[in-house]
């Protein structure tokens, strides 16, 4: 089974700042980590490989520094790593990102499954997974919390819902985004780290993926960040005083008209 895992380098959530000029996340001088949900996607891919054989390729679009994260992915069990990196990609929104990733994937070998985290913890859009599936024209399942079985070109998975889960069947190739409930990511192994140190990371630039320059980066983006702000909390507030019994009675009176 050939699996591609899309991973993104994000600022460590413990250390988040906004760039006051651009209103986007400040990435300079902030510790970068692998997006936590992508870590679960990688772990699931490695487990599938261990169970069914095959290969795991990690793919990231990002600046050259993202190489470090790709090496970490190799130390956790990925076989190959591909970094799609070019100045022309800068400022890409999810539309331009999925275009770039889709073009890059078309340059890689065939695949059976693409796994992504359900969203990145920086942008929180959760659009790249489904957008990429759409561009590649393959089935897509979001919020996968368990892959039950995978055989003969068919995959069955549990999709986490608010009130339980859906059992979803898809033909391969397909793209899944996963939630953190799916597994407990492993700690890198020593042999994995040694391999990661030596591995040659495939670099793809805009020209390598034969992308249309107008569809890349800020130029190819259909959204623009105008302003970032914390919404003000509105609505009326009232404090209920008295003994617990009195408070319950007052609350009941207030709620009754709303029912």
């Amino acid at each position: 089974m050939k699996i591609i895992v899309c991973v993104k380098q994000v600022p460590d959530a413990k250390d988040v700042r906004l760039d006051p000029k651009t209103n986007t996340l400040a990435r300079e001088g902030v510790q970068a980590i692998m997006n936590p949900y992508d870590r679960h996607a990688l772990e699931e891919a490695v487990r599938l490989k261990e169970a069914h054989g095959g290969t795991v390729t990690v793919l990231s679009m990002g600046p050259p520094q993202a190489e470090e994260m790709l090496r970490e992915a190799v130390s956790c069990g990925a076989d190959e790593a591909v970094l799609v990196s070019d100045r022309a990609f800068a400022g890409a929104d999810t539309w331009a990102t999925t275009y770039t990733l889709a073009m890059a994937i078309s340059k890689l070998n065939d695949f059976d499954l693409i796994l992504c985290g359900k969203q990145a913890i920086d942008g929180d859009t959760a659009q790249v997974g489904p957008g990429l599936a759409e561009r590649l024209n393959i089935p897509f399942v979001a919020y996968v919390r368990r892959i039950r079985e995978c055989a003969a070109g068919v995959i069955r998975a549990e999709r986490l819902m608010d009130d339980g889960y859906d059992l979803v069947e898809a033909s391969l190739p397909a793209l899944f985004t996963v939630v953190k409930e799916i597994n407990e990511p492993r700690i890198p192994s020593l042999k994995g780290k040694m391999r990661a140190k030596k591995i040659e990371i495939t670099r793809l630039a805009a020209a390598d993926i034969e992308a249309d320059p107008d569809s890349l980066g800020l130029k190819g983006s259909t959204t623009q960040v105008v302003r970032v702000f914390s919404p003000e909390l509105r609505g009326e507030r009232a404090m209920l005083n008295g003994s617990p019994d009195e408070q319950v009675a007052k609350l009941y009176e207030k709620l009754l008209p709303l029912l």
């Binding site: 890198p188 020593l190 040694m194």
Partner: peptide, 19 residues
């Protein structure tokens, strides 16, 4: 050595995240 540092890093991660 680089290899020894890797041993330390792996053991430290297990220590911090699990132990």
């Amino acid at each position: 050595s680089e290899e020894q540092q890797m041993i330390v890093d792996v053991a430290r991660q297990i220590t911090e995240e699990m132990i």
